[in-house]
Each structure stands twice: as structure tokens, then as C-alpha cells.
Design a protein around this nucleic acid. Sequence first.
DNA 1: CTGTTAGCGCATTCAT
DNA 2: ATGAATGCGCTAACAG
Lengths: 337, 337
Amino acid sequence: MKNHQTTIFDIARELGISKSTVSRALTGHPNVHASTREKVLKLAGDLEYQRNMYSIGLMKKRSHTIGILVPEFTRSFFPQVIIGAQERAKEAGYNLIIAQSDESYETEVANAKVMLAYQVDGLLVSMTRETNNFDHLKIFQRKGIPIVFFNRVCDEMIVPKVIVEDYEGAYAAVQHLIDRGRKRIAHLSGPESLSISHRRKSGYMDALKKNNIQADNDLIVHYDLSLPKVKIYVNYFLTLPDRPDAIFCINDPTAIETIRIIKESGLRIPEDIAVVGFSNDYVSHLIEPPLTTVEQPISEMGRTAADLLLKQIELSVEQWKAPTVVLKTKLIVRNSS
Amino acid sequence: MKNHQTTIFDIARELGISKSTVSRALTGHPNVHASTREKVLKLAGDLEYQRNMYSIGLMKKRSHTIGILVPEFTRSFFPQVIIGAQERAKEAGYNLIIAQSDESYETEVANAKVMLAYQVDGLLVSMTRETNNFDHLKIFQRKGIPIVFFNRVCDEMIVPKVIVEDYEGAYAAVQHLIDRGRKRIAHLSGPESLSISHRRKSGYMDALKKNNIQADNDLIVHYDLSLPKVKIYVNYFLTLPDRPDAIFCINDPTAIETIRIIKESGLRIPEDIAVVGFSNDYVSHLIEPPLTTVEQPISEMGRTAADLLLKQIELSVEQWKAPTVVLKTKLIVRNSS
DNA sequence: CTGTTAGCGCATTCAT
DNA sequence: ATGAATGCGCTAACAG
């Protein structure tokens, strides 16, 4: 299928010089005569020469590639994180290999293997909702390949992490609902396997407590982030004898779906029920009513995670640090509350 | 940084056998004693052995990797195409390398080089809005690496392409507006550099013509798909002495932004102005009013493009085909019209 | 069934 | 300033 690809040897032969000289000319080594370099560069251009990453990856300890493992990218959140990460990777001369796992643990494991096979110099990870065994990620640590978690982090592993003020954001959101006179505030939370669910739930709980509102277990539901299931839980809330007057959702996609279902049921937002999300995805201000939500700096998260990873790559294993960077959040009040 | 990675040689040494035997055991070659294979597999697992893609990429003609070049992935369209493509790539045992160009021609060229360096076996491409020189893509053809275009295709290159019924979809959308009694239908089109703009515009023009409506050049605007600029053009339409009573937009993100701006201006949708989009992105039914749009099979586009590419990879250059596959579209009528 | 050898494309010693 | 030789990890051809 593939024709012969142009190699440094082709250039060397054509010019009647050695491979080494060509290599030097191409990589910008100082010890090459200016005229030789010029000839090599010219011919390389004409022959559409392109360095072969595989031979370089094989030679060098560094592949100059970092990998990013995300659970999905149908919603805008992860693509935006990726854009941030890619920005920094590129600046540092790294390529970014992206893999999405479709929220499947098995796919995540397979993707992790691919990353290993590609000899990534480091790995950015946000886990699937199913992941609760981390062996496939711990391998990286053992092999001396740094990992940085973002968003959906693994508590069990001592590595750098980037999260946002989940607790504070959730607290602010719920306090806001209380300030608006809401008494029965429900929480549609994420999977118990994700610590992000716990942090946001804690903020919710503490805001209630602080305002002397008794948390009601009937009003707290964990779900697996599979959007079609939102309907089940929202309908459950709506048919409760003592219906909630507000729902705080784990994230924006969930909140948007919640709004859709409430509207379908004929109830009014925010008059009958207020809805608040978390993230400030770009859709949030487009829907009707516009969503009150906790803004998080999404591409900043990608940039920060990449920065931490690149820094870690420069260090030897013994020097590895494990900071947890917490980015700011900010409540954005719109008409859904 | 990196510790020593486990290689087949490590396994061979440990077991007192040769590298070749280990290699055979690992790759499932038939000529290996069952007990030997078992021992190798066991040890490989214990040592967390992982094949090195670079050495394989170097050895084989095939890298078993395909690349995908997209102009952006902040909106849901391209991620969804990628998911479709990845599905098929994975089934066929191929890895997918994703690169996004942020609508920048220069970045696209750089990304194309990366793909070349990674020795992709084939390339899926949807161009940036800026791309009108195709040298960086033609190189692939010359090197015998097949390309398949999707969505934003290059007319100049004779390669397989996947598009949708742009003309028919646009025609149906405009006919629908006319059926609803609209007389002055504006068209917010994409860049003239993209043939997709022309195809959709033709559908618009012909629908008008068929209904004996004189096309009005004041009502046709081309823009570069940079969302912030939508405001300029929509405001231009709104302040026209003879204001349009409908706007047909090149795609959904544009239509959604258009709706936002019209609402901001205080006009009612669809009473004062109807808006129709193209794509049926998942946001389209969430906004207020829900968007009337032309549905296109998004992940199907990714799957089809990948299928065409994989087929092409199996063929020698002389056997290459260049079919243009046209996927169905369907008008979805909602409340914005 | 298994071992030996060669070589993929390149950067990097070590010579000259 | 340049060339020759080496090896990264692996598979395939050849030899037993």
C-alpha cells in the first residue's frame, strides 16, 4: 500500500553524503557546514521528507507525547478541557493523544494500554463513572510515567490532581436557593464511586445544616450520569407527597435534562421548582429558562493539568510531587432559580 | 525519568528462551508449545509487559493507526463524528489519533505533519474554514496514504468523500418556510471557501426560484463561522428597511446564536421572524423556542468515513476509488418556525 | 517447535 | 565538518 517513504538515507544517497550528516543538518546540530545544511534542507523539502516518530520514539527515552483519557466527549466539558491541555502540550513541544472511554471501564483499561504502547511520557486522566479498580493506572506510576488527574480524580492514588471548589460551589448554590426562600431542596447527585459527587454533596449538606434545615434522605438521589435515567429520578421527585421546591443537580447536562422533564410535566420553573446546575457549560445560558449554575474554569482545568504533568515529567520519580490544585468556582444566577 | 520498560528480551532471559519464541507466544503464532506460551503469557502479565508501538510501527509497513483532522471540537458535531469513526476504527483494530485545528489553517498544516510523522495508515479530514491550499493534504496521496473527506470536503481532490444531502436539506427547509407563509427569507451562509456553503445555498436559491420568489442579494450573507460575528449579520438583517420574516442558517450553532440575538432585540420567534438551522445538534431541542432544523446523521458520518478509509487502506494506490457517499437528511419541524 | 540473524529509521557515540 | 558503527524493541526469514 504505502510507497517507499523518504528517509534520511535517500537524502544522503542523493547528495552523496552520509546519513549522519543529514541527520545533523535536519536536527539543527551546530557541526554542519552551512552549505551542506542548506542542500539537505532543500532536498528534504523537495522530497517531502518527514521524520519518522516511531524510530525516534524507539531511540529516545522520551516520546514527546502525552495522553489524555476522558470518560466521554459528547458534552462540551471534556472537549474544552482537552483544548486547554492541548494548548499547553503544544507550547511545550508535546503531542497529545486523546482517548475517550464512553463511560466504560473496560474501554478505559484498553485505552490505558494503548497509551502505554505509545510510550506516553505522561498521562492526564478523568475516570469513567464505572472505574473503581485502578490497577490499569497504577501501572503507569510503577513504570515511572507520571499521571495527573482532573475533574474525576482517584482518591486512592497519590498524584497531582486538579479539581474545582466543588464543596464551596455547591454550598453557594444551595445557600442561594435558601436565600430565595426554598425549603425543600433536592439533590440529584452523581455516582457514589466518584469523589466529585461526595464533595458536591457535602457542600449541599452543610449549607442545609448551617441554615437549620434537616436533610431529607428522600430528597437525595445518586445516579450514574446516564442522561436518559434523569427522567426516572426527576419524576420520582415530582411525585413525592411533599414535592421539593428546588433541585440542585450534580452538573449542567443533568440540570438541563431536569429542566426539560419538569417543563414536560407542566410545572413552572422557577415558580414551582427551581433548578441549579454545576459547570456553566455553554448551553446553559441558551436554554429556557437560562440555568443558574456554578461556573468552573473549564479550559483552565486542562491547562493546569497539563502544566502539572509537564512539570512532573521533568522530575525523577523520587522528586515527584502530588499537589491538589483547586480552581475557583463562581455562582452564576440566571432565571431557573 | 522512565525506569527500564519490560521488553521481550527481559521475558526471554528470565525464562531462558529466545526473544523470537517470546514474540511468537505473545503474537499468537501457532508454532509455539502450549506450555511455553503459557509461561510467557504468565510472566508477561506479572512483569506488566506492554508491546512497544514504536518498534512495531518501525518494523511493519502498517502502523495500524488512522488520523482524524477536525477544524474544532467545541460544538457537539465533530466529537460525535469522532465517536462514530472511533467505533469503526476500533473494530478493525486501528487506533485513532485526533487532532483539532481550532479553525486555523496553519495549525491544520502542522497537524497534518504530525499525522505523517506518526505514519498513519490513512487520514480522515474535515477542513478548517481557512483552508484553500491543499498541498499539506495532497502529500498524503503522493505518499500512498489514503484520505477520506467528510462534511467539509475538498472539491479539488479526487478521493472518497462523505457528505449529506445538503442541497435537498436546505431546499426542504426553505420550502417549509415558504409553506408557512414566509416571503422574505434570509440566508446566513458559511464561508465561500467551503463547498458545503454552496450546496446549502443552492438548495435555498432553488427553493425560492421554484416558488417564484425573487432571491434578494441583501438577504444573503456569507460569514466565517466565527460565532461572535453572527451578531453583526443578524443585526444587519433586523435593521433592513424591509426586514426578513425568516432566516435560514448554515448550521445549528449559527441558528442558536441567531435566536439568542433576535430574542435580545425583543422580536418574537417565530411570530416576527422564523429561524431554521441545519444539523440537529443535541442542543437544538433544548433551546427556547426549540429549533426547526435539518437533521443529519452525525455519528453515521464518522462511521461511513472510517469504513471508506479502511477499505481504501486495503487497496493498492492503483485500485483506489473515489466515491462520494451522500447521507440522508430530514427536516425536523419545531417551534422556531 | 525453537534459535539466530537481519533490519525497520534515526540519533549518537567514536573516529577521522 | 563528516563518516562509520551501534542500538532502541520488535518481527520475519531462515536455519535447524
